[in-house]
């Protein structure tokens, strides 16, 4: 395998990935490497392929070509959504996606790590450890008093939190977080940032974000990847990418230099 030749095993390695939707190239020869324990922020203008990239990692779509490998030996495109989930890859969607007709507690119960099999589900009763864990998460996401509410009755920001809580309950190795701060107040956004920072190290995290204040908060001293037209434009620290000519071109719509 390619990875072995570089003498290093990435948690996630995508190489030469392409994906187009009826002629539109959403992902274009993308190469992306992620180390275990990293907190990586991915930014990029609209249509840069950020969400499409997450779709490819989580099995929502399959790449037209290229390899995506997890922990150096699992080929992601061969697996379907729930098999990828069971590898330990969790995702928070761009628009909050929770089970609206279930209560907050049930949403967490459904997301709690453990067997996903049919038979197990018939006889599963949460034990005290699991209940404690869920209580703890409820406290973290500030939804203790709404535990018996139907998730559909929550406010937008609360749904975002609940979905983050579901991600926590899953206890995934790799967390893919798509625009967690969208629709949150500044305070909530800051809290979300703190939560993500506290998880860094224990989990590997990829955050997709637009809000540069939020990006500065979570990406301080960490690597930021800029996506543009389906491929990586540049990688580096926040300051580096913010001062990169190409990034400025892309974001500010300056005319492309001839090359």
């Amino acid at each position: 395998m390619k990875i072995e030749s570089t003498q290093k095993t990435f948690l996630l390695a995508a190489e030469g990935v392409n994906k187009s939707f009826s002629g539109f190239k959403a992902i274009n020869n993308l190469n992306f490497y992620l180390d275990t324990g990293e907190l990586r922020t991915v930014i990029g203008p609209n249509g840069a392929g950020k969400t499409s990239f997450l779709d490819l990692i989580t099995g929502r779509t399959k790449p037209d070509s290229g390899t995506i490998e997890f922990e150096g030996n699992v080929s992601i495109p061969k697996l379907n959504e729930y098999e990828i989930y069971r590898l330990g890859i969790g995702r928070k969607f761009q628009t909050p996606t929770v089970y609206t007709d279930h209560t907050v507690w049930e949403n967490l119960l459904l997301s709690l790590e453990g067997s996903r099999g049919v038979w197990a589900s018939l006889f599963h009763q949460p034990n005290s450890t699991e209940r404690d864990r869920m209580d703890e998460i409820l406290a973290t996401i500030n939804l203790v008093s709404q535990r018996h509410w139907k998730a559909g009755a929550l406010a937008h920001g609360q749904k975002q939190w609940l979905e983050i809580g579901m991600l926590l309950a899953q206890n995934a190795k790799l967390l893919l977080v798509d625009e967690p701060a969208a629709g949150m107040t500044d305070t909530e956004t800051h809290k979300t940032g703190e939560l993500l920072l506290s998880l860094a190290g224990k989990h590997t995290i990829v955050v997709i974000e637009h809000d540069m204040v939020f990006v500065r908060q979570i990406a301080a001293g960490r690597k930021v990847t800029v996506l543009h037209q389906g491929s990586v434009l540049c990688e580096g620290s926040v300051d580096e990418v913010q001062n990169d000519e190409r990034v400025l071109d892309v974001y500010l719509g300056r005319k492309k230099r001839s090359n």
């Binding site: 996606t97 089970y99 996903r116």
Partner: peptide
């Protein structure tokens, strides 16, 4: 819990897949 999953599938099958 089966019942919970059952209704999760009913309401949002895709989400259930992404819950494993």
């Amino acid at each position: 819990k089966f019942g919970l999953v059952q209704r999760a599938v009913r309401d949002s099958e895709t989400r259930a897949l992404f819950s494993g």
